[in-house]
Nucleic acid binder design. Structure first.
Length: 636
RNA sequence: GCCGACGUAGCUCAAUUGGCAGAGCAGCUGUUUUGUAAACAGCAGGUUGCGGGUUCGAGUCCCAUCGUCGGCUCCA
C-alpha cells in the first residue's frame, strides 16, 4: 500500500491522503512510498483508491473522469490553457491549469455549466496507445505534459484519453461516457505549485466533488456545511473561548476564561493520569542560551523555525522551540543509576516556532503553543516496553475524548542528525512496539524529526476527519550529543535512550480540535459552565443564588441568568451557549426547593431536588460521560 | 513565503454608474415580572484595517502595507 504524503495546512485535511493501486508490472516503483516529486505517478495512475474497495474504485474512476470533463470546459474557455495534472482525491478531484489570467468565482459557474452540457452530450472516453515520440509530439505545446512524459519509465505504455475535443495524457481508466459521471459540483479555486515544488510555477487548481447519486452529493455538501458550522474559529468567538488579536500578533492565541477553563480541565486530567503512571512534573524556562541549541542541533537543523535571538550580556538567547534540552539538563544535573530508570519528565511546555504566515489557522496552526510534552529516559532495553506503555496511554486518552485513531510511522527525513544504524534501531523499536500492541500503521516517508523517527497518532473525529496530535519519538541521537548516561550494574557509564512523546499534541491544537469534535457542546465534565440557573421572574433570583451556592459547594460550575430577559430568551441563550443543563426555577420550584432540569440535548426532565440533580450530574462528571441524562445515550 | 479572494459598528451584513455610511442582533436606559429556543420602546455605537494617490468629491478607482479566508509549501 502506498500513501501520498499529506499536504495541507489544516491538520485534519490530511485525510485528503489517498491510496494508490498496486503498480503491478512497473519495475522500480512497487512498494515505494511516493515522495513530493512523484506526481508523475499520480498522473500515470490517475485513479487513486483503496485497492480492496470496489466502491471507492468506482468513485475514483468517476471523479477522475469528472476532472477530464472539467479540463474540457476549461479548454473551451481558455484555448491557451496548459494542463498540469488532474487526479481523483478523497471526496472529489482537482485539476491544475496554467491560465492566462486568474480565475474568478464567476468562471467556476461558466465552467460548470459548460461541463453540464458536455455531460448531457454523453461524449465517449476513448483510449489510444501512443509511442513516446507521438506523445511528445501531441503535447509539444504543453511543457507540463512533456515533463510528465519524459519522466515516465522507459517501458511505460503511454496512453491518451479523448472525450469530445479534449485530449489528455492519461493512464485511465475512465467511465464509458461523460454521461456516466454522475452529479458533481466545483468547489474552490486555489494556487498550487507545479509538482508541489515551491520553486516551480504556481498553477491554478480547481477543486470539485462528484458522486454516483444526487443524494450522495447532497450528503457530502451537507457534511461540508456541518464542518463549517463546527469551525472552531467561529465557535471560539460565539462561545467566547479564545481570540487572536492583530495587535498581539498572528498565530498567538488569547485564551478567554471559558476556553482557558476547558484547557485547564484537560490539563488537570492529563496531569493526574501522568502522575498515576510514574511521570514526574518538571518546568523549564522559556528562553535558553545558544549553547544548548548548538549542542542539541537545533541551530543546525531547526533554525528556520526559531525566532531571532535576543542578546543578553553578549550571549544569544532563543525562545525555546522544543522542551527536550531543558529536560535533558534536569536529568544531567546528577548521576543516575540504572535503578532510577525509566525516568519520565512531563511538562506543559510552551514553545514558540516561526510558522510562515500563510500556514496559520485558528488554534490549529499557531506560532506559540503548549505541548503536553514528556521525555522518558531509559535503557536501550526498556525502549520497546516504554513505547508500548505510551501507546496504551495514548489509547486511553483517545477513548476519554471519544476519538478513534490511526497510527503513522514517520521515517528519517532528509535533514537529520545521527548515523544510519541508530536510525535503523530506533525505527525498529517503534515498529516492534506497535506490532506487539497489535497495531496496524501507515508510513509517512521522511516525515520524522531531525533527531529520530516517530509514531504520529491521528485522531479521527466525529466527522471522520483526521488530526495530527500525539507523537512518540525514539531518540538515540540527543543522548549522544548531550552525553546522557546512567551507571549500570557493571559500574560503567552507559548511554540512555530517550523517548519524546506528547499525548494530545499541543493544547492549542487539541482544544481547537475538541471544539470541532464536540461542535462546541462539551461533555459536562469539560463544559466551562455546567449549568445555568434560570429564574422565571426576579422573585426567584434569591432562590437561584441559593441553588447556585449549593451546586458550587458540590463542585459544579454554575451561573445564574439574572438578565431581564424572559425565561424563553434565557433558555435560548443557554442553548446557544451549549450549556449542558438549564435549571429553571419558578414559583413552584421555589416553594418545593427544587429545580426543573432541562438538558441542552434532550427533553425536560421535570422538577427535582438539588440532590436528585446532583445524582444525575456528578457520576457523569466523574466518569467523563458524553451523556447528560438517561434519556440521551448518544449525545456527542 | 507563494497564488487567489476578502477586510464597513462587538457580531452578521446593506450602501445605484464615485455624491450626506445604514439595518438586525449584542450593549445601555426605560416599561413589562413573564413557565421551556428571541417581550416592547428609546439611546448610544464608525477617521469604512492602516498609509499614500487620483478626483470638486472615495466605503466604492489606483498603489503600498497589515490581517483574514481558500489552497500550495511546511508543521504540534
Amino acid at each position: 500500500m502506498r500513501v501520498e504524503p499529506r499536504r495541507s495546512n489544516v491538520p485534519w485535511r490530511g485525510c485528503r491522503s489517498i491510496f494508490l493501486l498496486p503498480t503491478s508490472g512497473r519495475p522500480g516503483t512497487g512498494g515505494r512510498t511516493m515522495d513530493h516529486a512523484d506526481n508523475s505517478d499520480l498522473e500515470a495512475m490517475d485513479i487513486a483508491v483503496e485497492p480492496t474497495d470496489a466502491v471507492a474504485y468506482e468513485l475514483a474512476r468517476l471523479r477522475h473522469s469528472c476532472a477530464h470533463l472539467m479540463a474540457e470546459a476549461v479548454q473551451d474557455l481558455f484555448p491557451d490553457a496548459k494542463f498540469g495534472i488532474g487526479p481523483a482525491i478523497e471526496h472529489g478531484f482537482y485539476y491544475d491549469f496554467d491560465l492566462p489570467r486568474p480565475l474568478a468565482p464567476d468562471d467556476l459557474e461558466a465552467i460548470e455549466s459548460s461541463m453540464r452540457s458536455n455531460q448531457a452530450r454523453r461524449e465517449p472516453f476513448s483510449r489510444q496507445v501512443v509511442s513516446r515520440d507521438e506523445a511528445l509530439r501531441i503535447f509539444a505545446e504543453n511543457p507540463y505534459k512533456v515533463e510528465l512524459i519524459r519522466d515516465l519509465p522507459a517501458d511505460e505504455i503511454i496512453t491518451t484519453y479523448r472525450q469530445g475535443e479534449f485530449l489528455d495524457l492519461c493512464r485511465g481508466p475512465h467511465v464509458d461516457t461523460t454521461g456516466d459521471i454522475g452529479p458533481f459540483k466545483l468547489l474552490s479555486i486555489a494556487g498550487a505549485y507545479w509538482r508541489g515544488d515551491e520553486k516551480r510555477p504556481m498553477l491554478q487548481r480547481i477543486y470539485g466533488t462528484a458522486w454516483r447519486s444526487q443524494d450522495e452529493l447532497d450528503a457530502h455538501l451537507e457534511r461540508l456545511q456541518e464542518a463549517q458550522r463546527r469551525d472552531h474559529r467561529r465557535l471560539g468567538r460565539e462561545l467566547d473561548l479564545f481570540s487572536v488579536s492583530e495587535e498581539i500578533g498572528p498565530g498567538l492565541i488569547l485564551w478567554h476564561p471559558k476556553g482557558a477553563m476547558v484547557r485547564y480541565l484537560v490539563e488537570q486530567f492529563e496531569q493526574q493520569e501522568q502522575l498515576a503512571r510514574g511521570y514526574d512534573l518538571v518546568n523549564t524556562p522559556h528562553i535558553a542560551s545558544e549553547k544548548i541549541y548548538q549542542i542539541s542541533g537545533h541551530l543546525e537543523t531547526f533554525r528556520e523555525n526559531m525566532y531571532a535571538p535576543m542578546s543578553i550580556e553578549e550571549v544569544d538567547y532563543y525562545l525555546k522551540p522544543m522542551n527536550c534540552p531543558g529536560h535533558i539538563m534536569i536529568y544531567k544535573s546528577r548521576v543516575h543509576s540504572y535503578r532510577d530508570l525509566p525516568i519520565r519528565f512531563a511538562e506543559l511546555g510552551t514553545v514558540y516556532r516561526y510558522e510562515r504566515s500563510g500556514t496559520l489557522h485558528g488554534m490549529l496552526r499557531v506560532r506559540g503553543f503548549t505541548q503536553d510534552d514528556a521525555h522518558i529516559f531509559c535503557t536501550v532495553d526498556q525502549v520497546v516496553d516504554e513505547v508500548r506503555s505510551v501507546i496504551d496511554f495514548a489509547i486511553h486518552m483517545a477513548g476519554v475524548f471519544g476519538y478513534e485513531f490511526q497510527a503513522y510511522l514517520a521515517t528519517r527525513p532528509t535533514k537529520a542528525i545521527g548515523s544510519d544504524e541508530v536510525w535503523e534501531r530506533a525505527t525498529t523499536d517503534l515498529i516492534r512496539a506497535m506490532q506487539e500492541r497489535g497495531w496496524s500503521y501507515k508510513i509517512d516517508e521522511g516525515e520524522g524529526t531531525f533527531y529520530g523517527p516517530k509514531i504520529d497518532i491521528k485522531w479521527v473525529d466525529a466527522l471522520g476527519r483526521e488530526w495530527t496530535g500525539p507523537t512518540i519519538q525514539v531518540d538515540f541521537n540527543l543522548p549522544e550529543r548531550f552525553d546522557v548516561n546512567y551507571i549500570a550494574e557493571d559500574g560503567e557509564r552507559h548511554r540512555v535512550a530517550m523517548i519524546h512523546r506528547t499525548l494530545l499534541g499541543s493544547m492549542e491544537r487539541f482544544v481547537g480540535g475538541l471544539i470541532e469534535h464536540y461542535a462546541g457542546a462539551f461533555p459536562v465534565w469539560l463544559a466551562p459552565v455546567q449549568a445555568v440557573i434560570i429564574p422565571i421572574t426576579d422573585g426567584q433570583i434569591e432562590a437561584a443564588e441559593d441553588v447556585k451556592r449549593q451546586l458550587e459547594r458540590a463542585g459544579l460550575r454554575v451561573e445564574v441568568d439574572t438578565s431581564r430577559d424572559r425565561m424563553q430568551a434565557k433558555i435560548r441563550n443557554a442553548q446557544l451557549q451549549k450549556v449542558p443543563y438549564m435549571l429553571v426555577i419558578g414559583k413552584r420550584e421555589e416553594v418545593a426547593r427544587a429545580v426543573a432540569v432541562r438538558p441542552r440535548s434532550g427533553p425536560d426532565l421535570g422538577a427535582m431536588s438539588i440532590d436528585d440533580f446532583l445524582a444525575i450530574v456528578q457520576p457523569r462528571i466523574a466518569s467523563h460521560s458524553l451523556t447528560l441524562s438517561d434519556l440521551d445515550g448518544t449525545e456527542a
